[in-house]
Design a protein around this nucleic acid. Sequence first.
DNA 1: GTCTATATTCTGATAGAC
DNA 2: GTCTATCAGAATATAGAC
Lengths: 176, 176
Amino acid sequence: MPQQRSTRDRLLDAFEQLLVDEGSRAATLDAVAAAAGVSKGGLLYHFGSKETLVDGMVERLREQGETDVELMRTADVGPVEYYLQTSVASGSDFDRALIAASRIAQENTHQAADVLAEIRDSWFTVLKEDLDDEALARTIQLIGDGLYYNDFCGISNPTALTHVREVLARLTAPTD
Amino acid sequence: MPQQRSTRDRLLDAFEQLLVDEGSRAATLDAVAAAAGVSKGGLLYHFGSKETLVDGMVERLREQGETDVELMRTADVGPVEYYLQTSVASGSDFDRALIAASRIAQENTHQAADVLAEIRDSWFTVLKEDLDDEALARTIQLIGDGLYYNDFCGISNPTALTHVREVLARLTAPTD
DNA sequence: GTCTATATTCTGATAGAC
DNA sequence: GTCTATCAGAATATAGAC
């Protein structure tokens, strides 16, 4: 059975949640420690500095990203539908990690931006392999980016995915 | 002739540029003042607090947004092409203002998020009127969001727009 | 592993000179 | 309109007790 979430993981969870909900400025060591239910000293035992905390978050994101790409590659519904479905807010751990990373992507030493770019490249590779159509793969990736950006900004469009599916269907079955 | 850029405008420019380049944490009053070439006291004469500075930026963005929507509505190339072209990084003042605003959209009292939502709504309205096709309008807006998100993350895809145009062309002229 | 001081620097903001 | 000096509080980080 899965052991209880470690303090280390709870600290990363709290850091991500603060980034998602209130942004980079609010995600202070104080706030992260409090949200995880430990003292600042307790936090600094696990992550010796704020930079180390960011590193830990980014490293966990990289692992989650690898898992996601494998799930996308082997999804029953196919890579495209899997990609679109997971581009809308689902509240998953991976969603939170992605949004959190993009909140700090332009700060610090760009490690977050690098991992985000890596994951995006993997998604594109899978889409291109599946579709064998670079222009369409690029367009679908942009639509996923758009859905993801809406999530990032807190915009919710329940019908967006339906509309996208309808338009994509026209490409394979023209309404002539 | 246009008079020289006022100190007030230079302060807003510097604030936006810092938000775009280094993010919210780096956009301190100290840094903004230095980048604009004035002292912190000088800054605080024009904007009495950081909140006022944000207000000023958001208000300027609203005006730029209204101008842009009018340009989109009357563009020679049509609203769709105008929208796609201006969704990729062009380095315009409006681009910078949009990216800057989304960097702080989840912070403070959500004024930035509100104006961004307003502008997005206007774009969608114009797209829907022009296309008379809600699903397609929504999809094109998402593609624009995707292009904009790539810019936001510092990703550059010179061929993205070409690919999008190609796929959109297939919708009106099927390759049967 | 976790906590409570404490040190240090940064950040936003005020007061008053020029 | 712009500057310097200054302050209170926040943010990161260290030291050492438990």
